[in-house]
Write a protein that binds this DNA or RNA. Structure first.
Lengths: 344, 344
DNA sequence: CTGAAAGCGCTAACAG
DNA sequence: CTGTTAGCGCTTTCAG
C-alpha cells in the first residue's frame, strides 16, 4: 500500500503526517492521540512517538469547526480597562472558576468606548465564544438580542443589561450610596461633597441615588450644590476635589464614588491643613494604612458568581434571567472618625 | 433552479441560509458581506438585508481554518496572575498596541505554577495563536523549541528565556538592585534587610545580585545575614519584615524586592515607633502619599515593546533574538530621606 | 482493533 | 458581475 509522502501544507505537521510516519491511517492516529476507543498498545506507542518526533500539535481550530460551536471552551470577557484593579480582580475570579471547568477566558478592553465595545462584541461572537461576560459601557444592548436568541449565554457584570433579558451580577450600589451618606450624617456632617464618574454610568447614578435618598430623608435637599460629576480619571478627580474645597463654603466631608476618584481625593487632601472627612467606594490598596473609610466589596466574588450563572446556563438552566446583588460593606477608618466634623 | 430549503444545522444560520434567502450563490453572499470584489449594488443590499434578518454572524472558526493559521489575529499572553497590577498594566499596554494592528489578546493565568503554565501553553498553541507573549514561571523552556522552529514568534517578558532562543523584554533588575543598595548606603545604612520573592525567580535573583554587588563593593560581605526569601504574598512579606525587626540587631533599612513585598513591609512598619528606612521595587498605588521610596518603571511600556518585537517578527524580521532592557528609576521619598539612619 | 468517506462553514481558484 | 468546485485538518459514521 502506497501512501503520500507526507508534506505538511501549512508548515506544521498534521494528523496525516503523523499517520504516514507511523504507518497507520489518519483515523487511527487520531484515536491514539486522543486516548479514545481501543487502539493496540504498540500502535499507540508508535503514533505517539511519531507525533513527538514531528512536533505535532492538534489543530484546535479544525477540531472546533468539526465538533461545532457548542463544544467551544472559550468564554469572552468584555471590560472597560484591565489596568483598573476592579476589572482585573473580577477577571481573576472569573478565570479561576472557569478553569476548574476546563474553560478558558479571553479578555478584551473597550476603553469605556461604546463603539469599541460594539466592534469587540462582534468579533468575540464571530470567534464563536461559548458565552459572554460583559461589563458594558453602552447605554443599551439591543445588539445582543439576536445572540441571546441563538442561545449564547450572556452575563452582565457591574452594570445592568438594558433592552435585553440576561443574567446579571451587580453591586448593591444604591445601598452603598445610602450607607456612605448615613455614616457621614451620623458624624454630624451636613455639607457633603460628592464627586462622581461619568454621569451616564448606572453604577454612579445608583450610588448617587442612594446618597440622595439619605440626604433628603435627613432634610437636606440642598445636597446637589456640592456635586461634581464626570471625573473619570484620577487627575480629574483630584481637580474636582480641589475645586470643591476652594469654594466659599467648602464641604466638611466628601464621598468619592469609586476607586479612581478616591485615589484622586486622597492626593488632593494630602497634607491639607484641615482636610474634610473622606469616604470612598471600592477598597483601596493599603486603605488601612492610608486610613481611608470605604465601602468595600469583592470583585473576585463578582467574577465567581458570573461564572456560576454562566455554567448553570450551559448546563441547561433556561429559567428567567437571574439577578445577583452583591452587598457592600462599610469600613470606618480615621478619615471619617478622627477628622473634625462641621463644628470646627 | 431549485435550492435546498436552508436549514441551519448548528442552530445558527450560515452563508448558505443567507444565500438562499437572497437568491444568490453562496460565494456571492460571501463577497457581498466582505465587501470584496465587484458585486452589483442591489445584490449587495439584498444579501445584507437577508443577513440582518437572519441574525447572520460570520463563523470565524471556519474562516480561520480555511485561511490558514498565518492569518490568525489572536495573540496569547501567559502571565502569573492578572490581579497583580504589574501584569494587568503589562497586559493593558500590550493589548492596546496589538489592537492598533487589528490583533486580539487572549490572556491566561498560570498562578505561577509551572505545570499549569505548560498545560496552558499547549492549549494556546492548539488554538493556533499567531504569537505568544510569556511571563514564565518555569525554570526552562525546552518545550518551546519546537514551536519556535515552526515559526511562531515568542516574546518573553519580565523573565528571560532559558534553553530557547527568543526575544525578550526585561527590566534592568541588576541595576535596580544596585541602585537600591547605593541609595541606602549613601544615607549611612550598613545593616540592610532584604526581603525576597521565591528564590527560583530570576527577577528576584537579579535584584539581589545587583544589591550584593553594591554591598560587597562597600566592604559589607555580611549582608546575607539580613536576607529573608520566599515571601510570595503580602502576608508572608509582612511576617518577614516583622521577623527582621524582632532580631537582636535589626536592620536600619529594608529593601523590598517587589510590589507585594513592599505592600507587606509598609503594613509591618505602619505605626512602628522607630521604623527603619524602606525602599521598594515597583511603584505603589499612592506611593507618593505613602512616602515610600521606590525603583519605578512602566509595565505598560514593557507591553508595548513586546508588541513591537512581535509585530516586527510577523512582518518578516528574522534576525537573531533581540533583548530589550528597560531601565528602572529611583524615586527618593521620605521613607529613605527622613527616617533615622544607623546613628540613632 | 482499524480504515474510508463525508463534511463542519468558509474562501481561493477558476470558470462563465 | 456571478457561480462551481475543491479543500483547510479534524472527527463522525459506518464498514471492515
Amino acid at each position: 500500500m502506497t501512501r503520500e509522502p507526507a508534506r505538511p501544507s501549512s508548515g506544521r505537521p498534521g494528523l496525516a503526517e503523523v499517520a504516514a510516519l507511523s504507518g497507520v491511517s489518519i483515523k487511527t492516529a487520531s484515536r491514539a492521540l486522543n486516548g479514545e476507543g481501543y487502539v493496540a498498545e504498540h500502535t499507540r506507542a508508535r503514533v505517539q512517538e511519531a507525533a513527538q518526533r514531528l512536533g505535532y500539535r492538534l489543530n484546535g481550530v479544525a477540531r472546533e469547526l468539526r465538533r461545532g460551536a457548542a463544544a467551544s471552551t472559550l468564554v469572552g470577557l468584555l471590560s472597560g480597562d484591565l489596568a483598573n484593579p476592579f476589572y482585573s480582580r473580577l477577571a481573576s475570579g472569573l478565570e479561576r472558576e472557569l478553569r476548574r471547568r476546563g474553560m478558558q477566558l479571553i479578555t478584551a478592553s473597550t476603553d469605556e468606548d461604546p463603539d469599541t465595545e460594539l466592534r469587540i462584541t462582534e468579533s468575540l461572537i464571530e470567534r464563536r465564544v461559548r458565552a459572554l461576560v460583559v461589563a458594558s459601557t453602552m447605554a443599551e444592548h439591543q445588539h445582543l438580542v439576536a445572540e441571546r436568541r441563538h442561545g449564547i449565554p450572556i452575563v452582565f457584570v457591574d452594570r445592568p443589561p438594558v433592552g435585553v433579558a440576561a443574567d446579571a451580577v451587580l453591586l448593591d450600589n444604591v445601598d452603598g450610596g445610602r450607607l456612605a451618606a448615613v455614616h457621614l450624617l451620623a458624624a454630624g456632617h451636613r455639607r457633603i461633597g460628592l464627586v462622581g464618574d461619568l454621569s451616564r454610568l448606572s453604577t454612579y447614578r445608583d450610588r448617587a441615588a442612594g446618597f440622595a435618598e439619605a440626604m433628603e430623608d435627613a432634610g437636606l435637599p440642598g445636597w446637589r450644590d456640592h456635586v461634581l460629576e464626570d471625573a473619570h480619571d484620577v487627575a480629574a478627580a483630584e481637580r474636582a476635589v480641589r475645586a470643591l474645597l476652594a469654594r466659599p463654603e467648602p464641604p466638611t466631608a466628601i464621598f468619592a464614588t469609586n476607586n479612581r476618584i478616591t485615589t484622586g481625593a486622597v492626593r488632593a487632601l494630602w497634607r491639607h491643613p484641615r482636610p474634610p472627612a473622606l469616604i470612598g467606594f471600592d477598597e483601596l490598596d493599603l486603605g488601612d494604612v492610608l486610613e481611608v473609610s470605604v465601602l468595600t466589596h469583592e470583585p473576585e466574588e463578582m467574577g465567581r458568581q458570573a461564572a456560576q450563572l454562566l455554567l448553570g446556563r450551559l448546563d441547561g438552566d433556561d429559567g428567567p434571567p437571574r439577578l445577583v446583588l452583591l452587598p457592600t460593606r462599610l469600613i470606618a477608618r480615621a478619615s471619617t472618625t478622627q477628622r473634625p466634623g462641621p463644628g470646627h
